[in-house]
């Protein structure tokens, strides 16, 4: 047996650094284009709809829904102890969709129901902090 690999950590670029710094503070933030009234995921220098560079970093609600997912029975390097694990697409309340993990719930088709409400959470990964999601508490469900 070879030694187990660490889970891969993202390496921020200048354009994405604020996303990762915000996650470290416990905030989910994205650039917002006022002209398009749209958030830009992933973060980049200009809005991909209108090419405006007048983007404003904005803190999101952290609420979203489980848009789609799969449950991997094969382990990515570093995920040997996690299989089977869900890889999810979360649709944020503000519109953007992003890949994430769903914590605090069985990684099964029975437990993971499409469109279930989720809230963001954060967990350390190497030198950075990774946004993940959890089922929304019942009293927070709108």
């Amino acid at each position: 047996m070879t030694s187990r690999a660490a889970k891969p950590a993202p390496a921020p670029t200048p354009e994405t650094a604020e996303y990762w710094r915000a996650a470290e503070r416990g905030e989910l933030r994205l650039p917002y284009c006022a002209g398009c009234d749209a958030y830009v995921f992933y973060p980049r220098g200009a809005c991909p709809t209108c090419w405006s560079t007048e983007l404003t970093w904005t803190t999101l609600s952290g609420r979203g829904r489980l848009h789609s997912y799969l449950i991997s029975h094969i382990a990515a390097p570093g995920f040997e102890q996690d299989v089977p694990y869900a890889i999810a697409i979360v649709e944020l309340e503000e519109g953007p969709r992003l890949m994430s993990s769903v914590r605090g719930i069985a990684q099964t088709p029975e437990a993971l129901v499409l469109d279930m409400p989720l809230v963001v959470d954060f967990e350390p990964r190497g030198d950075v902090t990774l946004p993940v999601f959890r089922p929304a508490p019942v009293d927070a469900r709108g």
Binding site: K7, P8, A9, P10, A11, P12, T13, T16, Y42, H67, S68, Y69, L70, S72, I74, A75, A76, P77, F79, D82, Y85, I87, A88, I89, L98, M99, S100, S101, L114, R125, L130
Partner: peptide, 23 residues
């Protein structure tokens, strides 16, 4: 991809390609 997909355990086609099928 290295920042926004790979950290969540996506690494080969089976862990990515079918992600929309349930939707």
């Amino acid at each position: 991809m290295g920042q926004f997909e790979q950290p969540y355990g996506a690494f080969t086609p089976p862990t990515l390609f079918p992600i929309g099928v349930l939707r």
